[in-house]
């Protein structure tokens, strides 16, 4: 009898566990791959606008559900100076995971990724050697949904993309690939 009770309890744990699993993945529509997602964007101004609209719908869902600890890629409206970046990060109380910047070396576009740290800009300047520094173009960060409204309306923000967060993917958090290179290719006038 006692043995049967234990089996009953174990069975109940398995059923509850399965239900929790289903609850956690309820928002996932398909396996997320940041590269294939990026490559699926139509290479045109309309394609960018459509993608932007879809991403903004996601933000409304996160706000409504008050989701925290969200993986986000923020693409800037224009390349930012180091001082502008610092002000932006402080204003929105962001701890960036990885920041990208652009430099030009003749016809070559250089892309630099750097972790947020004390001598960050110094390392960037050393890394690009004699190339011309253009500015900071996008970043990876972990956000709470309450930060989204102000980030979205900041004139220095082009897009806050949270498509790779586990809320939508049902798996590990992934940072979407930023749109910076594509926008430059399309000579997209963000304003």
């Amino acid at each position: 009898m006692r043995k049967q009770s234990w089996f009953l309890v174990l069975g109940l744990i398995v059923v509850v566990g399965s239900l929790i699993q289903v609850t956690n993945t309820v928002h996932a529509s398909k396996a997320y791959n940041s590269v294939s997602e990026y490559k699926s964007i139509e290479r045109s101004i309309d394609g960018i606008e459509q993608y932007k609209a879809k991403v903004k719908e996601n933000l409304r869902r996160l706000e409504k559900e008050k989701v925290n600890n969200i993986a986000a890629t923020i693409t800037f409206e224009k390349p930012l100076s180091f001082e502008e970046l610092q002000t932006y990060v402080k204003k929105h109380q962001i701890t960036p995971r990885q920041i990208q910047c652009r430099a030009l070396d003749g016809n070559d576009r250089l892309t630099i990724a750097v972790k947020q740290q004390k001598n960050m800009h110094e390392i960037v300047q050393k890394q690009i050697e004699s190339a011309t520094f253009i500015g900071y173009i996008d970043m990876y960060a972990i956000l709470d949904s309450k930060q989204i409204p102000e980030l979205e309306t900041d004139p220095l923000t082009f897009l806050v993309d949270t498509s790779g967060d586990s809320y939508f993917t049902g798996s590990d958090k992934e940072f979407p690939h930023a749109l910076s290179w594509l926008l430059e290719d399309l000579k997209y006038n963000k304003k």
Partner: peptide, 9 residues
């Protein structure tokens, strides 16, 4: 802490 490259995108 940092990567730089001239590879495309």
């Amino acid at each position: 802490s940092s990567i730089v490259s001239n590879l495309p995108d």
